[in-house]
Nucleic acid binder design. Structure first.
Lengths: 218, 218
DNA sequence: TAGATTGTTAATCGATTAACAATC
DNA sequence: TAGATTGTTAATCGATTAACAATC
Protein backbone atom coordinates (compact mmCIF):
# COMPACT_ATOMS: atom_id res chain seq x y z
CA UNK A 1 0.00 0.00 0.00
CA UNK A 2 2.21 2.67 1.41
CA UNK A 3 5.43 3.43 -0.42
CA UNK A 4 7.52 3.91 2.70
CA UNK A 5 6.25 0.68 4.14
CA UNK A 6 7.28 -1.36 1.12
CA UNK A 7 10.63 0.36 1.01
CA UNK A 8 11.20 -0.64 4.61
CA UNK A 9 10.36 -4.24 3.79
CA UNK A 10 13.06 -4.45 1.15
CA UNK A 11 15.50 -2.81 3.52
CA UNK A 12 14.70 -5.29 6.27
CA UNK A 13 15.17 -8.10 3.82
CA UNK A 14 18.55 -6.90 2.58
CA UNK A 15 19.80 -6.29 6.07
CA UNK A 16 18.61 -9.69 7.26
CA UNK A 17 20.46 -11.40 4.43
CA UNK A 18 23.62 -9.65 5.50
CA UNK A 19 23.13 -10.58 9.14
CA UNK A 20 22.49 -14.15 8.12
CA UNK A 21 25.69 -14.21 6.08
CA UNK A 22 27.48 -12.98 9.18
CA UNK A 23 26.23 -15.96 11.12
CA UNK A 24 23.51 -14.28 13.17
CA UNK A 25 20.47 -16.32 14.06
CA UNK A 26 18.25 -13.85 15.87
CA UNK A 27 17.70 -10.15 15.87
CA UNK A 28 15.75 -7.63 17.95
CA UNK A 29 13.43 -4.86 16.76
CA UNK A 30 15.97 -2.64 18.35
CA UNK A 31 18.88 -3.71 16.12
CA UNK A 32 16.83 -3.54 12.96
CA UNK A 33 15.49 -0.13 13.85
CA UNK A 34 18.95 1.29 14.44
CA UNK A 35 20.28 -0.14 11.20
CA UNK A 36 17.61 1.17 8.88
CA UNK A 37 16.93 4.34 10.80
CA UNK A 38 13.48 3.83 12.29
CA UNK A 39 12.17 3.26 15.80
CA UNK A 40 11.98 -0.27 17.18
CA UNK A 41 8.26 0.30 17.63
CA UNK A 42 7.82 0.73 13.90
CA UNK A 43 9.76 -2.45 13.19
CA UNK A 44 7.49 -4.38 15.50
CA UNK A 45 4.42 -2.75 14.01
CA UNK A 46 5.54 -3.65 10.50
CA UNK A 47 6.25 -7.25 11.42
CA UNK A 48 3.01 -7.56 13.28
CA UNK A 49 1.13 -6.16 10.27
CA UNK A 50 2.71 -8.88 8.18
CA UNK A 51 2.16 -11.56 10.79
CA UNK A 52 5.88 -12.13 11.14
CA UNK A 53 6.24 -13.84 14.49
CA UNK A 54 8.77 -13.01 17.19
CA UNK A 55 9.54 -14.39 20.60
CA UNK A 56 8.76 -12.28 23.63
CA UNK A 57 12.19 -12.88 24.98
CA UNK A 58 14.30 -14.10 22.09
CA UNK A 59 13.53 -11.52 19.42
CA UNK A 60 12.99 -12.58 15.82
CA UNK A 61 14.41 -15.60 14.07
CA UNK A 62 16.31 -14.42 11.03
CA UNK A 63 15.65 -17.50 8.94
CA UNK A 64 11.93 -17.19 9.47
CA UNK A 65 11.95 -13.50 8.69
CA UNK A 66 14.00 -13.93 5.53
CA UNK A 67 11.82 -16.75 4.31
CA UNK A 68 8.57 -14.92 4.91
CA UNK A 69 9.84 -11.61 3.56
CA UNK A 70 11.07 -13.33 0.42
CA UNK A 71 7.63 -14.75 -0.04
CA UNK A 72 5.93 -11.43 0.61
CA UNK A 73 8.28 -9.66 -1.76
CA UNK A 74 7.55 -12.28 -4.39
CA UNK A 75 10.91 -13.92 -4.51
CA UNK A 76 9.43 -17.38 -4.50
CA UNK A 77 8.19 -16.63 -7.99
CA UNK A 78 10.44 -15.83 -10.96
CA UNK A 79 11.16 -12.10 -11.13
CA UNK A 80 11.68 -11.69 -14.80
CA UNK A 81 11.95 -8.29 -16.42
CA UNK A 82 12.13 -7.12 -20.00
CA UNK A 83 13.70 -3.89 -21.17
CA UNK A 84 12.14 -1.96 -24.02
CA UNK A 85 14.59 0.35 -25.73
CA UNK A 86 18.25 -0.64 -25.81
CA UNK A 87 19.98 2.71 -25.90
CA UNK A 88 22.45 3.70 -23.23
CA UNK A 89 20.10 3.37 -20.30
CA UNK A 90 18.57 0.16 -21.53
CA UNK A 91 21.91 -1.52 -22.12
CA UNK A 92 23.24 -0.16 -18.85
CA UNK A 93 20.47 -2.03 -17.09
CA UNK A 94 21.11 -5.20 -19.03
CA UNK A 95 24.81 -5.05 -18.22
CA UNK A 96 24.21 -4.51 -14.56
CA UNK A 97 24.74 -7.70 -12.63
CA UNK A 98 23.60 -6.52 -9.22
CA UNK A 99 20.01 -7.60 -9.79
CA UNK A 100 20.72 -11.28 -9.55
CA UNK A 101 21.32 -11.15 -5.85
CA UNK A 102 17.77 -9.91 -5.48
CA UNK A 103 16.39 -12.66 -7.65
CA UNK A 104 15.62 -10.23 -10.43
CA UNK A 105 16.55 -11.27 -13.94
CA UNK A 106 16.45 -9.27 -17.14
CA UNK A 107 15.44 -11.84 -19.68
CA UNK A 108 15.19 -9.84 -22.90
CA UNK A 109 15.68 -6.48 -24.54
CA UNK A 110 13.66 -5.03 -27.39
CA UNK A 111 14.78 -2.47 -29.90
CA UNK A 112 13.86 -1.17 -33.32
CA UNK A 113 17.31 -2.12 -34.61
CA UNK A 114 18.42 -5.09 -32.55
CA UNK A 115 21.38 -5.59 -34.83
CA UNK A 116 22.80 -2.18 -33.92
CA UNK A 117 22.67 -2.70 -30.19
CA UNK A 118 26.01 -3.13 -28.52
CA UNK A 119 25.44 -4.67 -25.15
CA UNK A 120 28.11 -6.39 -23.17
CA UNK A 121 25.67 -8.74 -21.49
CA UNK A 122 24.25 -11.92 -22.86
CA UNK A 123 20.66 -10.82 -22.62
CA UNK A 124 19.08 -11.52 -26.02
CA UNK A 125 17.76 -8.55 -27.94
CA UNK A 126 14.71 -8.89 -30.14
CA UNK A 127 13.00 -6.61 -32.65
CA UNK A 128 10.00 -4.61 -31.47
CA UNK A 129 7.52 -6.82 -33.31
CA UNK A 130 8.28 -9.70 -31.00
CA UNK A 131 7.32 -7.73 -27.90
CA UNK A 132 3.79 -8.96 -27.41
CA UNK A 133 4.40 -12.61 -28.18
CA UNK A 134 7.42 -12.74 -25.90
CA UNK A 135 5.53 -11.22 -22.99
CA UNK A 136 2.67 -13.65 -23.38
CA UNK A 137 4.80 -16.72 -23.95
CA UNK A 138 7.00 -16.06 -20.95
CA UNK A 139 4.33 -14.63 -18.70
CA UNK A 140 6.33 -11.47 -18.09
CA UNK A 141 4.75 -9.13 -15.56
CA UNK A 142 7.26 -6.32 -15.23
CA UNK A 143 8.87 -4.18 -17.92
CA UNK A 144 11.28 -1.28 -18.10
CA UNK A 145 10.68 1.55 -20.56
CA UNK A 146 13.94 3.10 -21.79
CA UNK A 147 12.83 4.58 -25.09
CA UNK A 148 12.78 8.27 -26.11
CA UNK A 149 10.04 10.33 -24.49
CA UNK A 150 8.06 10.55 -27.70
CA UNK A 151 7.65 6.78 -27.78
CA UNK A 152 7.11 6.16 -24.10
CA UNK A 153 3.36 6.35 -23.87
CA UNK A 154 2.87 4.22 -26.97
CA UNK A 155 5.09 1.54 -25.47
CA UNK A 156 3.22 1.76 -22.20
CA UNK A 157 0.00 0.94 -24.01
CA UNK A 158 1.54 -1.97 -25.82
CA UNK A 159 2.99 -3.37 -22.61
CA UNK A 160 -0.28 -3.11 -20.75
CA UNK A 161 -2.21 -4.65 -23.61
CA UNK A 162 0.21 -7.55 -23.66
CA UNK A 163 -0.32 -8.23 -19.97
CA UNK A 164 2.44 -6.33 -18.18
CA UNK A 165 1.36 -5.20 -14.72
CA UNK A 166 4.35 -3.26 -13.48
CA UNK A 167 6.31 -0.64 -15.40
CA UNK A 168 9.47 1.22 -14.52
CA UNK A 169 9.73 4.24 -16.79
CA UNK A 170 13.00 6.04 -17.49
CA UNK A 171 11.70 8.23 -20.29
CA UNK A 172 11.50 11.85 -19.15
CA UNK A 173 7.72 11.99 -19.20
CA UNK A 174 5.45 11.23 -16.30
CA UNK A 175 3.56 8.17 -17.44
CA UNK A 176 0.30 7.29 -15.82
CA UNK A 177 -2.33 4.93 -16.95
CA UNK A 178 -5.55 6.80 -17.50
CA UNK A 179 -7.32 4.14 -19.47
CA UNK A 180 -10.41 2.46 -18.17
CA UNK A 181 -9.11 -1.05 -18.57
CA UNK A 182 -6.11 -0.95 -16.26
CA UNK A 183 -7.08 1.10 -13.24
CA UNK A 184 -5.80 -0.78 -10.21
CA UNK A 185 -4.09 -3.51 -12.10
CA UNK A 186 -1.02 -1.80 -13.41
CA UNK A 187 1.59 -0.01 -11.35
CA UNK A 188 3.82 2.56 -12.99
CA UNK A 189 6.91 4.03 -11.38
CA UNK A 190 8.57 6.97 -13.04
CA UNK A 191 12.27 7.58 -12.59
CA UNK A 192 12.60 11.18 -13.66
CA UNK A 193 16.19 12.23 -13.41
CA UNK A 194 15.59 15.87 -14.35
CA UNK A 195 13.09 16.07 -11.53
CA UNK A 196 15.54 14.53 -9.10
CA UNK A 197 18.17 17.05 -10.07
CA UNK A 198 15.74 19.93 -9.71
CA UNK A 199 14.78 18.66 -6.30
CA UNK A 200 18.44 18.57 -5.37
CA UNK A 201 19.02 22.09 -6.59
CA UNK A 202 16.10 23.32 -4.60
CA UNK A 203 17.49 21.84 -1.43
CA UNK A 204 20.99 23.06 -2.13
CA UNK A 205 20.02 26.54 -3.13
CA UNK A 206 17.29 27.71 -0.93
CA UNK A 207 16.56 26.65 2.52
CA UNK A 208 15.71 30.20 3.27
CA UNK A 209 13.07 31.13 0.74
CA UNK A 210 10.16 29.97 2.73
CA UNK A 211 9.33 32.56 5.37
CA UNK A 212 11.76 34.94 3.71
CA UNK A 213 9.41 37.90 3.73
CA UNK A 214 7.54 36.71 6.73
CA UNK A 215 8.32 39.91 8.53
CA UNK A 216 5.05 41.77 8.42
CA UNK A 217 4.58 44.47 5.86
CA UNK A 218 2.95 47.45 7.52
CA UNK B 1 11.66 20.35 3.69
CA UNK B 2 9.11 17.77 2.79
CA UNK B 3 9.82 15.65 -0.24
CA UNK B 4 6.25 15.66 -1.53
CA UNK B 5 6.05 19.40 -1.17
CA UNK B 6 9.13 20.04 -3.30
CA UNK B 7 7.95 17.55 -5.86
CA UNK B 8 4.69 19.45 -6.14
CA UNK B 9 6.58 22.69 -6.65
CA UNK B 10 8.42 21.34 -9.67
CA UNK B 11 5.17 19.94 -11.02
CA UNK B 12 3.45 23.29 -10.63
CA UNK B 13 6.32 24.95 -12.40
CA UNK B 14 6.31 22.59 -15.34
CA UNK B 15 2.59 22.80 -15.73
CA UNK B 16 2.63 26.59 -15.54
CA UNK B 17 5.25 26.76 -18.28
CA UNK B 18 3.00 24.69 -20.48
CA UNK B 19 -0.04 26.82 -19.74
CA UNK B 20 1.97 29.91 -20.46
CA UNK B 21 3.10 28.48 -23.79
CA UNK B 22 -0.56 27.86 -24.54
CA UNK B 23 -1.31 31.53 -24.04
CA UNK B 24 -2.98 31.36 -20.63
CA UNK B 25 -2.53 34.29 -18.31
CA UNK B 26 -4.28 33.22 -15.15
CA UNK B 27 -5.07 29.98 -13.43
CA UNK B 28 -7.15 28.85 -10.45
CA UNK B 29 -6.16 26.58 -7.59
CA UNK B 30 -8.83 24.38 -8.97
CA UNK B 31 -7.22 23.89 -12.40
CA UNK B 32 -3.81 23.26 -10.95
CA UNK B 33 -5.16 20.79 -8.44
CA UNK B 34 -6.93 18.79 -11.11
CA UNK B 35 -3.89 18.71 -13.33
CA UNK B 36 -1.37 17.47 -10.81
CA UNK B 37 -3.81 15.37 -8.84
CA UNK B 38 -4.18 17.21 -5.54
CA UNK B 39 -6.99 19.18 -3.93
CA UNK B 40 -7.33 22.90 -4.67
CA UNK B 41 -6.95 23.51 -0.96
CA UNK B 42 -3.47 22.05 -1.02
CA UNK B 43 -2.50 24.20 -3.98
CA UNK B 44 -3.59 27.31 -2.11
CA UNK B 45 -1.86 26.12 1.03
CA UNK B 46 1.38 25.54 -0.88
CA UNK B 47 1.25 28.93 -2.55
CA UNK B 48 0.42 30.66 0.67
CA UNK B 49 3.35 28.91 2.39
CA UNK B 50 5.60 30.32 -0.31
CA UNK B 51 3.98 33.74 -0.24
CA UNK B 52 2.85 33.38 -3.83
CA UNK B 53 0.05 35.91 -4.17
CA UNK B 54 -3.32 35.34 -5.82
CA UNK B 55 -6.36 37.49 -6.45
CA UNK B 56 -9.49 36.73 -4.53
CA UNK B 57 -11.49 36.80 -7.69
CA UNK B 58 -9.00 36.43 -10.53
CA UNK B 59 -6.98 33.45 -9.40
CA UNK B 60 -3.22 33.41 -9.85
CA UNK B 61 -1.18 35.24 -12.44
CA UNK B 62 0.88 32.69 -14.31
CA UNK B 63 3.80 35.01 -15.05
CA UNK B 64 4.15 35.87 -11.40
CA UNK B 65 3.94 32.25 -10.34
CA UNK B 66 6.48 31.12 -12.90
CA UNK B 67 8.89 33.86 -12.00
CA UNK B 68 8.68 33.24 -8.28
CA UNK B 69 8.80 29.47 -8.60
CA UNK B 70 11.86 29.71 -10.81
CA UNK B 71 13.51 31.75 -8.15
CA UNK B 72 12.48 29.40 -5.38
CA UNK B 73 13.68 26.40 -7.36
CA UNK B 74 16.96 28.14 -7.93
CA UNK B 75 16.67 28.74 -11.62
CA UNK B 76 17.92 32.28 -11.36
CA UNK B 77 21.31 30.83 -10.51
CA UNK B 78 23.33 28.57 -12.82
CA UNK B 79 22.36 24.96 -12.30
CA UNK B 80 25.56 23.24 -13.24
CA UNK B 81 26.14 19.58 -12.65
CA UNK B 82 29.15 17.33 -13.02
CA UNK B 83 29.04 13.60 -13.63
CA UNK B 84 31.60 11.34 -12.01
CA UNK B 85 32.00 8.06 -13.83
CA UNK B 86 31.44 7.99 -17.57
CA UNK B 87 30.23 4.47 -18.12
CA UNK B 88 26.89 3.76 -19.68
CA UNK B 89 24.79 5.60 -17.14
CA UNK B 90 27.15 8.54 -16.94
CA UNK B 91 27.31 9.03 -20.68
CA UNK B 92 23.57 8.46 -20.99
CA UNK B 93 23.09 11.46 -18.71
CA UNK B 94 25.57 13.58 -20.63
CA UNK B 95 23.86 12.74 -23.91
CA UNK B 96 20.44 13.54 -22.61
CA UNK B 97 19.31 16.93 -23.80
CA UNK B 98 16.08 17.22 -21.84
CA UNK B 99 17.78 18.96 -18.92
CA UNK B 100 18.31 22.20 -20.71
CA UNK B 101 14.66 23.10 -20.65
CA UNK B 102 14.86 22.99 -16.88
CA UNK B 103 17.95 25.17 -16.82
CA UNK B 104 20.13 22.29 -15.76
CA UNK B 105 23.45 21.89 -17.51
CA UNK B 106 25.96 19.08 -17.28
CA UNK B 107 29.26 20.89 -17.57
CA UNK B 108 31.81 18.10 -17.19
CA UNK B 109 32.36 14.41 -16.83
CA UNK B 110 35.16 12.69 -14.93
CA UNK B 111 36.58 9.27 -15.55
CA UNK B 112 39.68 7.24 -14.82
CA UNK B 113 40.29 6.81 -18.54
CA UNK B 114 38.86 9.86 -20.22
CA UNK B 115 40.38 8.81 -23.50
CA UNK B 116 38.29 5.62 -23.57
CA UNK B 117 34.98 7.34 -23.04
CA UNK B 118 32.71 7.38 -26.03
CA UNK B 119 30.08 9.99 -25.47
CA UNK B 120 28.00 11.51 -28.21
CA UNK B 121 27.63 14.81 -26.42
CA UNK B 122 30.10 17.65 -26.33
CA UNK B 123 30.47 17.66 -22.59
CA UNK B 124 34.21 17.63 -21.87
CA UNK B 125 35.57 14.65 -19.97
CA UNK B 126 38.46 15.05 -17.58
CA UNK B 127 40.65 12.64 -15.65
CA UNK B 128 39.78 11.98 -12.03
CA UNK B 129 42.67 14.03 -10.71
CA UNK B 130 41.05 17.21 -12.00
CA UNK B 131 37.88 16.63 -9.96
CA UNK B 132 38.60 18.83 -6.98
CA UNK B 133 40.09 21.76 -8.83
CA UNK B 134 37.26 21.82 -11.35
CA UNK B 135 34.61 21.84 -8.64
CA UNK B 136 36.31 24.67 -6.82
CA UNK B 137 37.10 26.75 -9.85
CA UNK B 138 33.57 26.54 -11.23
CA UNK B 139 31.76 26.61 -7.92
CA UNK B 140 29.89 23.42 -8.69
CA UNK B 141 27.33 22.49 -6.07
CA UNK B 142 25.69 19.37 -7.46
CA UNK B 143 27.26 16.15 -8.69
CA UNK B 144 26.10 12.81 -10.04
CA UNK B 145 27.81 9.61 -8.97
CA UNK B 146 27.78 6.97 -11.71
CA UNK B 147 30.75 4.85 -10.74
CA UNK B 148 30.79 1.18 -9.66
CA UNK B 149 29.41 0.53 -6.20
CA UNK B 150 32.84 -0.20 -4.78
CA UNK B 151 33.99 3.33 -5.60
CA UNK B 152 30.84 5.22 -4.72
CA UNK B 153 31.49 6.07 -1.12
CA UNK B 154 35.05 7.17 -1.84
CA UNK B 155 33.80 9.51 -4.54
CA UNK B 156 31.13 10.83 -2.19
CA UNK B 157 33.81 11.83 0.26
CA UNK B 158 35.88 13.54 -2.40
CA UNK B 159 32.88 15.45 -3.69
CA UNK B 160 31.87 16.64 -0.26
CA UNK B 161 35.40 17.65 0.61
CA UNK B 162 35.61 19.66 -2.59
CA UNK B 163 32.46 21.58 -1.75
CA UNK B 164 29.62 19.70 -3.43
CA UNK B 165 26.37 20.04 -1.52
CA UNK B 166 23.96 17.87 -3.49
CA UNK B 167 24.62 14.37 -4.77
CA UNK B 168 22.55 12.13 -6.99
CA UNK B 169 23.83 8.59 -6.63
CA UNK B 170 23.23 5.88 -9.23
CA UNK B 171 25.60 3.33 -7.74
CA UNK B 172 23.66 0.46 -6.21
CA UNK B 173 24.62 1.27 -2.66
CA UNK B 174 22.66 3.46 -0.32
CA UNK B 175 24.97 6.39 0.30
CA UNK B 176 24.48 8.54 3.30
CA UNK B 177 26.79 11.01 4.83
CA UNK B 178 27.65 9.96 8.34
CA UNK B 179 30.59 12.25 8.83
CA UNK B 180 30.57 14.98 11.38
CA UNK B 181 31.51 17.73 8.98
CA UNK B 182 28.56 17.60 6.61
CA UNK B 183 25.44 16.94 8.62
CA UNK B 184 22.80 19.29 7.29
CA UNK B 185 24.84 20.74 4.51
CA UNK B 186 24.87 17.96 1.99
CA UNK B 187 21.84 16.30 0.48
CA UNK B 188 22.18 12.86 -1.05
CA UNK B 189 19.53 11.23 -3.20
CA UNK B 190 19.92 7.60 -4.06
CA UNK B 191 18.43 6.22 -7.25
CA UNK B 192 18.40 2.51 -6.58
CA UNK B 193 17.02 0.70 -9.56
CA UNK B 194 17.10 -2.74 -8.01
CA UNK B 195 15.04 -1.39 -5.15
CA UNK B 196 12.54 0.17 -7.54
CA UNK B 197 12.15 -3.12 -9.35
CA UNK B 198 11.67 -5.01 -6.12
CA UNK B 199 9.06 -2.51 -5.07
CA UNK B 200 7.29 -3.06 -8.37
CA UNK B 201 7.37 -6.82 -8.00
CA UNK B 202 5.92 -6.54 -4.55
CA UNK B 203 3.00 -4.52 -5.82
CA UNK B 204 2.48 -6.76 -8.82
CA UNK B 205 2.74 -10.02 -6.95
CA UNK B 206 1.05 -9.67 -3.68
CA UNK B 207 -1.74 -7.38 -2.80
CA UNK B 208 -3.15 -10.14 -0.71
CA UNK B 209 -0.39 -11.10 1.67
CA UNK B 210 -1.23 -8.61 4.31
CA UNK B 211 -4.19 -9.84 6.34
CA UNK B 212 -3.88 -13.19 4.61
CA UNK B 213 -4.22 -15.25 7.74
CA UNK B 214 -6.23 -12.66 9.54
CA UNK B 215 -9.00 -15.12 10.08
CA UNK B 216 -8.66 -16.03 13.73
CA UNK B 217 -6.97 -19.24 14.66
CA UNK B 218 -8.97 -20.97 17.36
C1' DT C 1 -24.42 43.91 -6.20
C1' DA C 2 -23.93 38.92 -6.50
C1' DG C 3 -20.80 35.41 -7.40
C1' DA C 4 -16.47 33.32 -7.23
C1' DT C 5 -12.06 32.54 -5.46
C1' DT C 6 -8.37 33.29 -2.29
C1' DG C 7 -6.15 32.78 2.26
C1' DT C 8 -6.48 30.75 6.62
C1' DT C 9 -8.28 28.33 10.53
C1' DA C 10 -10.05 24.22 12.46
C1' DA C 11 -11.10 19.27 11.58
C1' DT C 12 -9.59 15.05 9.68
C1' DC C 13 -6.77 11.48 8.50
C1' DG C 14 -2.97 8.32 8.48
C1' DA C 15 1.40 7.15 9.88
C1' DT C 16 4.63 6.97 13.55
C1' DT C 17 5.72 6.64 18.36
C1' DA C 18 5.35 5.91 23.31
C1' DA C 19 3.89 3.10 26.73
C1' DC C 20 2.80 -0.99 28.85
C1' DA C 21 0.64 -5.47 29.68
C1' DA C 22 1.60 -10.13 28.30
C1' DT C 23 4.98 -13.57 28.39
C1' DC C 24 9.11 -16.06 27.26
C1' DT D 1 12.23 -15.69 39.51
C1' DA D 2 13.67 -11.35 37.47
C1' DG D 3 14.64 -9.22 33.25
C1' DA D 4 13.94 -8.31 28.61
C1' DT D 5 11.39 -8.09 24.52
C1' DT D 6 7.29 -8.70 21.83
C1' DG D 7 2.62 -7.31 20.35
C1' DT D 8 -0.81 -3.95 20.73
C1' DT D 9 -3.34 -0.03 22.33
C1' DA D 10 -3.62 4.80 23.00
C1' DA D 11 -1.25 9.29 22.22
C1' DT D 12 1.23 12.16 19.14
C1' DC D 13 2.55 14.29 15.17
C1' DG D 14 2.40 16.18 10.59
C1' DA D 15 0.30 16.59 6.38
C1' DT D 16 -3.92 17.08 3.93
C1' DT D 17 -8.61 18.63 3.58
C1' DA D 18 -12.95 20.97 4.52
C1' DA D 19 -15.05 24.99 5.54
C1' DC D 20 -15.70 29.68 5.57
C1' DA D 21 -14.81 34.61 6.25
C1' DA D 22 -12.60 38.16 3.59
C1' DT D 23 -12.68 40.40 -0.66
C1' DC D 24 -12.08 41.23 -5.52
Amino acid sequence: MNKDFILRLTKYKRLLYKLKALGFERVFSNNLGDAIGVTPALVRKDFSTLNLPGNKRGGYNIDTLVEKLDKILGRDRPQQVIVVGCGRIGTALMDYSGFNTDGIEIVAGFDLQPENVKAGSNVPIYPMEKLETFIKEHDILVGVIAVPDTEASKIMDRLIDAGIRGILNFAPVELKCTRTDCPNNTTIHNVNIALELEHLFYQVNSQDFINEDDKEAD
